[in-house]
C-alpha cells in the first residue's frame, strides 16, 4: 500500500484573507510563503471524491473523509477512506511541523497495525490516481527555489506565474514545475510539472473555486497525466470550516476505526 503525504488538502482548502501588502511588489519567495501560510481556519472537515478516468473513459471512484487542524506547532491532517471496499477504513495521519519536519502514519485494516511512514514514499501514486503524494503536500518554501516568471490571467483570475525547483534532488521527483498562483487568495490554480528529463509530464488545473465561510476553496480540480492520457478529478462534496474538531481525532489511536 502506498504511503501518503496528506497535505494535498492545501489544494482543497484554500482560504483567503485580503493581502495587506498587495500594492507592494512581491518577490517569488514572498509569494511562496504567502501560499504556505495562507490561513485555513482553526480546523475543517470535508467529504471528497476522487474520480480516476482512463484513456478509454472508464471511471473508478474513491471517497474519503478529511479533517485538518492547525495548532501552534503543526498542521495535522487526518484522512479515512470510505470507498472503494478494498481500501475502506484505511486511515492516515500526517503531522506537518512548522519547522519543516513531517511525521506520517498509516493504518491498514488488513494488518491491524499503525505504521510510521518513511519519506521515500512521497513520490508515488496516491491510491491509483494521477496525484502523487508529493503533488498533494504542503510545500515548505525553505526546500525550494522560486523564480517569478510573469503575471497572467488563468480563467480570468490574475495570477503570478512561478517557476519552482527543489534545492535538493531528494525533495522532489520533478526537475521543476511552473505554478499559477492567484493574486487574490494565493491559490495554486494551475501547475505544469516537468520530469527529471525536463519534459512536461503532468498538469494540475483547478476547475472551480469559491469562498466558503469566507475561505477560498477549490471545489473541483483535475490532474492529467499527459504521457498516458488519463486524468483524475478531485471533487469536494461537502466542507465545513471552524467546526471545533477535537484533538483526539488527530491521534494514532483514532486511526483504527
Amino acid at each position: 500500500m502506498r504511503v501518503f503525504t496528506l497535505f494535498w488538502i492545501l489544494f482543497l482548502i484554500l482560504p483567503l484573507t485580503e493581502p495587506k501588502a498587495q500594492a507592494q511588489k512581491l518577490s517569488a519567495q514572498d509569494i511562496a510563503w504567502a501560499v504556505y501560510n495562507r490561513p485555513v481556519g482553526k480546523d475543517s472537515e470535508s467529504y471528497t471524491q476522487m474520480i480516476l478516468i482512463d484513456r478509454r473513459g472508464h471511471k473508478k471512484e474513491r471517497k474519503m473523509y478529511v479533517a485538518v487542524k492547525d495548532d501552534p506547532k503543526a498542521r495535522k491532517t487526518f484522512m479515512r477512506f470510505l470507498s472503494p471496499l478494498d481500501i475502506r477504513n484505511t486511515s492516515f495521519l500526517s503531522i506537518s511541523y512548522n519547522n519543516g519536519k513531517e511525521e506520517q502514519f498509516l493504518y491498514l485494516p488488513a494488518l491491524r497495525r499503525v505504521r510510521r511512514i518513511a519519506g521515500s514514499f512521497r513520490f508515488h501514486r496516491f491510491v491509483n490516481s494521477d496525484f502523487t503524494y508529493e503533488d498533494l503536500e504542503r510545500r515548505c518554501p525553505k526546500k525550494y527555489n522560486y523564480q517569478l516568471m510573469k503575471e497572467e490571467n488563468y480563467k480570468a483570475s490574475p495570477c503570478y506565474v512561478l517557476k519552482c525547483w527543489p534545492k535538493k534532488r531528494k525533495y522532489s521527483a520533478y526537475q521543476y514545475w511552473v505554478e499559477w498562483v492567484t493574486k487574490k487568495g494565493f491559490l495554486v490554480v494551475k501547475v505544469d510539472y516537468y520530469d527529471r528529463r525536463g519534459h512536461l509530464c503532468k498538469r494540475f488545473e483547478a476547475l472551480e473555486w469559491k469562498p466558503i465561510q469566507g475561505y477560498w476553496t477549490i471545489i473541483s480540480s483535475k490532474m492529467t497525466d499527459l504521457k498516458r492520457k488519463h486524468y483524475t478529478l478531485l471533487i469536494v462534496d461537502k466542507i465545513r470550516y471552524n467546526v471545533g474538531l477535537k484533538n483526539k481525532i488527530f491521534t494514532r489511536r483514532n486511526l483504527r476505526p
Binding site: R115, R116, I117, A118, G119, S120, K170
Partner: peptide
C-alpha cells in the same frame, strides 16, 4: 522500535 532514517523506514 520503529522510526524513519533519512528517507527509509
Amino acid at each position: 522500535f520503529e522510526t524513519t532514517w533519512g528517507e527509509a523506514g
